[in-house]
Nucleic acid binder design. Sequence first.
RNA 1: GCCCCCUUGGUGAAAUUGGUAAACACAGCGGACUUAAAAUCCGUAGCCUUCGGGCUUGCCGGUUCAAGUCCGGCAGGGGGCACCA
Length: 878
Amino acid sequence: MNERANQPAMISERYNPGAAEPKWQSVWDENGTFVTENHDPRPKYYVLEMFPYPSGRIHMGHVRNYTMGDVVARYKRAKGFNVLHPMGWDAFGMPAENAAMQNKVHPKEWTYENIANMRAQLKAMGLSLDWSREFATCDVDYYHRQQQLFLDFFEKGIVYRKESKVNWDPVDQTVLANEQVIDGRGWRSGAVVEQRDLTQWFFKISDESEDLLEKLDTLKEWPEKVRLMQRNWIGRSEGLRIHFEFSGPKPANHESIEVFTTRPDTLFGASFMALSPEHPIAATIAKDDPALQDFVEECRRLGTSVAALETAEKKGYATGYSVRHPFVENQELPVYVANFILMDYGTGAIFGCPAHDQRDLDFARAYGLPVRPVVVPEGTEPESFEVGDVAFTEDGLLANSEFLDGLTIEEAKEEVASRLETRTVSEKPAATRQVNFRLRDWGISRQRYWGCPIPIVHCDTCGVVPVKSEDLPVKLPDDVVIDRPGNPLDRHDEWRNVACPKCGKPARRETDTMDTFVDSSWYFARFTDPKADDPTNPEVANAWLPVDQYIGGIEHAILHLLYSRFFARAMSKTGHLAVDEPFKGLFTQGMVTHETYRTDTGDWKSPAELRFEDVDGTRRAFDRETGEEVSIGGIEKMSKSKRNTVDPTDILETFGADTARWFMLSDTPPERDLEWTSKGAEGAFRFVQRVYRLFYEFQNLNPEVKEMSNFGSDALEIRKAAHAALANVESDIEKLGFNRAVARIYELVNILGRIELTADMKEDVLAAYSEALTILANIMAPMTPHLCEECWSLLGSKSLLAEAPWPTCDHQLLIEDLITLPVQVNGKKRGSVTVAVDADQQSVEDAVLAEDFVQKALDGKPPRKLIVVPKRIVNVVV
RNA sequence: GCCCCCUUGGUGAAAUUGGUAAACACAGCGGACUUAAAAUCCGUAGCCUUCGGGCUUGCCGGUUCAAGUCCGGCAGGGGGCACCA
């Protein structure tokens, strides 16, 4: 134990966070208080916050996120768990390259400098992190193991290459994610985005669709909202694949068109077939049809950009071919190629049933195709039912459908499926039941420098050859020039040209790097043994995982969390883990918001530039320099563009970490958006001072506290209040109800603050007060650890509060002898009655009926009903 | 367009999951201490009232002895997906 740990940082009337916070941080650090051992007999608890991107400075969102995680970590540690609470850096990505281009600084240098800055900021928050496990995803040691994972996935067929359409920015010479294409243009360059076919690496996440969907039900400690979003994203639908045979001429090598439908019940309403422009049959037909070639080319040009999709009309090209209706003799359906059919969902072909699908209806109206309703609302005559411009997609009964007439939709689906299953079309079953998913494979290739290199070599003789494990890591070259768009790895011949690992002939490295989402898909596993030679030490990783409580922003509800769930499965299949679900508990915190300010000319102003005045009861804002009035706008997420940010560093310097932490936890439930206000921060600071004063004044009294066994009623009240707060704070933290825990602490502090400390205090009151302060320091410590450590030492403790066990609640104290029940008359509260807590039904009834206000209400008559809810309420019905 | 969530005082919210609506805090108001300020402390506070009481959880209706909580409808706000057959 460090010598200084015995002593408070100061003994003064006012708490000085500037002195206390660094002191206690270094004491914890020197004592290794938060270093976690992998082998420990205590039960494990893994709490993790989403690791930050090292942008250079922490923001209020980080403060909120990491404060919540720290409360849980400190609380669980006090409760006797071996807590793993690590921190690292999601350090690859575009901003480093952009900074490199703008400021002529190497991405590596820029990133590590940012990390150093942000680490110092996080340390100033007093987080109970095990910094010995820290790593950045751009550390060679980390991406080395990621390359090993890639090779293992490759061997198991979990990763593969395929040609796919990408959004290509011709100016920046890179692939853009769909989110980076705005109105058909690149978000940075503004260039019109092209559709290109590129060969890209993919993870086979779609193989796990069913499991990823099913296991969502087991994630009971996840927000329902996130599970729903994932469910929709995976997008399961059940349906039927049906072969439609060509009637008359057939395109070369094709006997039939296979479609996927979720509405086989509407088969009799079919009036056309439509193929995706990318469908192989369309390509076959186009060979002999220049007009179709033109049409396909036009669709390709319009592409899949959001803007194109929103405005595109339904367009089609009649191929002249047609197929047979499976049930209606002599009915032929014309085959179109249509721009609204997606190749990568289902089979890339549909049968169109205009009456019951809006898209099909729009198409049919444009091309004069028949619209025949085959489902009508119950109780409607089929003859009188017509479809106008809106397709009928609601429930109803089958009509105009021969053997299906009168059936429900579900019955009809089943009937069609069972009839077609047993039939054959060119020796294959005419239909098969199938489950389809919206989820597509995860394309991970990025044409960028600052990412994890894909450990593959392309050889003219051997093709795609994985780098040998023993030759890993494939290190990023440091000597790159990032002065123009495109991937500098492509231009780095020395790095690029290597011998083929198989045949030794000259070959070329894969120059694509991995999507940064890959990096963040397994970091939680690496934290369990960050120095291991393999990606994980399975024994250790399996002991720690799953993460018991994961905390982060809702913006990661789908991609990051889904990818991580996929990775856990893929890593389990390759022997690195034995868990499928990486995160047992998930909590998504709300954003930090702030008022916005704008000048008449529309410029945003930051709160630091303004001074505020109350003019006739309204708050108004003025520019500090020019005095110009600025209008106060809406409360929005803190963002650089709206300039409504507050720098955590300023707050830490002015008020200290504990004030910032306390504010973050107070008032607003953690899942909701929290508005940062300077008044609120000042209020939190005042409270920190108030708590300190309780301890300061107590130690100033220099009391001699004796062990007591008998307490008078005053002392008992204090003890009750303290133990009630203890019990409540405990259950609130367990439920992550930090705002409620804060309110309970206010209550206790209010009660203690009303007690006057005097030299001649009764011994039992003194003992109770001392006990209450001890409890207060303990239950508040997870939230304001420096303050509480300081107060703890003021009480004369020789040990560290951060290492102290959670106090035990004396539940006997919380049991009352008497209870006051509200009494309602006809459901409205009219009074109350005080009875023994264990009073039986009859004696409560007697007590209630003896009350004047009840007698008055009854007016001499017996009650019609007398409801007694034990320990809750009484209701007299007259 | 489809799916989901939310709506409680001036403000952030609480309410043991159907049982006293507004705990706790912020802002306010009144007061004490002080030459003054800062700091601190005490008090006060949903609305209406003929002072008996009446009304009150976005609006309308329902179930119930009892509804912020459950059910149906409507309005407003937010989010996710988006030509997914």
